[in-house]
Nucleic acid binder design. Structure first.
Lengths: 269, 269
DNA sequence: CCGCATTGGTTCATATTGTGAACCGATAGT
DNA sequence: ACTATCGGTTCACAATATGAACCAATGCGG
């Protein structure tokens, strides 16, 4: 691994939950010695990626990240387009919603929105969505480039008792997503969290990301499941359109079928 | 220089004006060979800092920068606080306004706002504000840590025919800023651009950044100058308050004096 | 259709750079 | 006064970065 990657990797330890980190603490988090970590931090400091709180000596993210984000958003204005959609999605479903994007072999969070309908709700605070254990990840495997499966199977960490840890279990989940048009994670990544995801497609016609609803497992009824599916399909259609893409007919067919089935069920009930 | 710094430095070549860059082009911009540049880019790609446009093979900023920016903004929510103020400032002055922050020995842009009052206006598209040639930089030298002067005098590049390039000229500018409470740049960085800056102070009582108005030189009259000074002082007071700081009495006194002098002039006119 | 230029990307012997245990001085709690 | 922690530095040793030369692919003018 290049030293540049090791240096840059330090940045991933900063998060809203842990925005300021001292040298020793960062050593522990990164699993490295003080000398190296300090050198890395100096490299990040001269480039403006971190700055040191002069009072506490702790490090925090620096101002250049704001510049870069602005350029990224002007280049690929995906966040702004997704924000409004997931906000509405959170409102109608009453659950936490989020959008993730695929870059290389990794699914990154792009934006999230919490609903205030319930006093308990899911908080999205992850750096990357594991391919094998999250609804977004399953979506990526089912509708994204097929090389992803290799990456996914390399590291199938068990986050909960239910996380799929065998290739067979993973392939079953992926197959199910391809048949329904939705990724699904039932207490696979966090206890008590059920998630549903719909794939998003961009101007190249490729899988570009996923829009998801994360619900507290205890209130995730079959009815809510159906409702979320319908709204997810709508949300994905809208975001895909905003990103310059459109839903492939094969996927559209799956969603329509799923919706029709629901209508039938609703009529018969 | 560490390889990490060299790697990270590649990111600074991405800007709204040049959001996607090919390998060869980046080699030229960075002044390095293809092999190294390619290795750097791979490091940036695996960490999600850049991604490759699959069609053009060009590289562009990746999604992680958005994550980092979000964390930064939650940690140090300076941009949001400044945005509203510079927007109003742009409206009342009719000129382009911006806010910069000091991190280490570098002044970075944080936010900018263009006025639509005139058909010609200044566009802010810089990565860093040179200490010796911009109003923000002079502010930093005049009111920031005194070590900055050494950094500034190390590289006094002449951007225009009027850029101060001697220590003496620079010290004169800094002295003037200390006496008036405003940084000033009269066609020092770009031809036809006059800028005025007021220092911003944060919760530690230290200089934290500057708020500036950049005007097209040909319409920069003495009257506009006075008007901008008054509004800048107000803007700085407000942003400093938002950032948890307050204006030192010494600076407040300078601004008040400046305003009073203006009143006297207005009365006598 | 050919030749020339340019693209993104790779190889490998060489030389620079990264590494981390041990260390220092400062601070804080017992 | 003792101990533990903090941020930060040193230096012999080991790994990593470097870049000229090299492919293969693409585009373009004649």
């Amino acid at each position: 691994m290049s030293s540049a990657v090791k240096t840059i990797a330090l940045l991933s330890h900063f998060s809203p939950a842990r925005p300021e980190i001292g040298l020793s603490e960062l050593c522990r988090l990164a699993g490295r010695d003080k000398a190296s970590t300090h050198r890395y931090l100096q490299a990040l400091e001269v480039t403006g990626f971190v700055e040191q709180n002069p009072l506490t000596k702790c490090y925090r993210l620096g101002p250049v990240v704001l510049q870069l984000a602005q350029t990224r958003e002007l280049t690929v204005p995906r966040k702004a387009a997704a924000d409004a959609v997931i906000s509405r999605l959170a409102e109608v479903t009453g659950e936490t919603t989020h959008v993730s994007v695929l870059s290389g072999a990794t699914v990154y969070p792009l934006a999230s929105c919490e609903s205030y309908k319930h006093s308990t709700r899911v908080i999205i605070d992850v750096q990357t969505f594991p391919l094998h254990a999250t609804a977004s990840g399953i979506c990526a495997l089912a509708f994204g480039p097929k090389e992803l499966l290799a990456s996914a199977s390399e590291n199938m960490q068990a986050f909960t008792a239910d996380t799929p840890t065998t290739i067979m279990a993973l392939e079953r989940a992926v197959q199910s997503a391809r048949e329904t048009g939705f990724g699904r994670s039932d207490r696979w990544y966090e206890d008590d969290v059920c998630s549903l995801s719909a794939p998003i497609f961009d101007q190249t016609g490729q899988f570009a990301g996923a829009v998801s609803v994360a619900s507290v497992a205890t209130r995730f009824t079959a009815e809510l499941d159906r409702s979320i599916q319908w709204h997810l399909a709508e949300a994905s259609r809208e975001i895909s359109r905003n990103w310059g893409g459109e839903i492939p007919e094969t996927v559209n067919y799956l969603w329509d079928k799923s919706t029709q089935k629901q209508n039938i069920m609703e009529h018969s009930s």
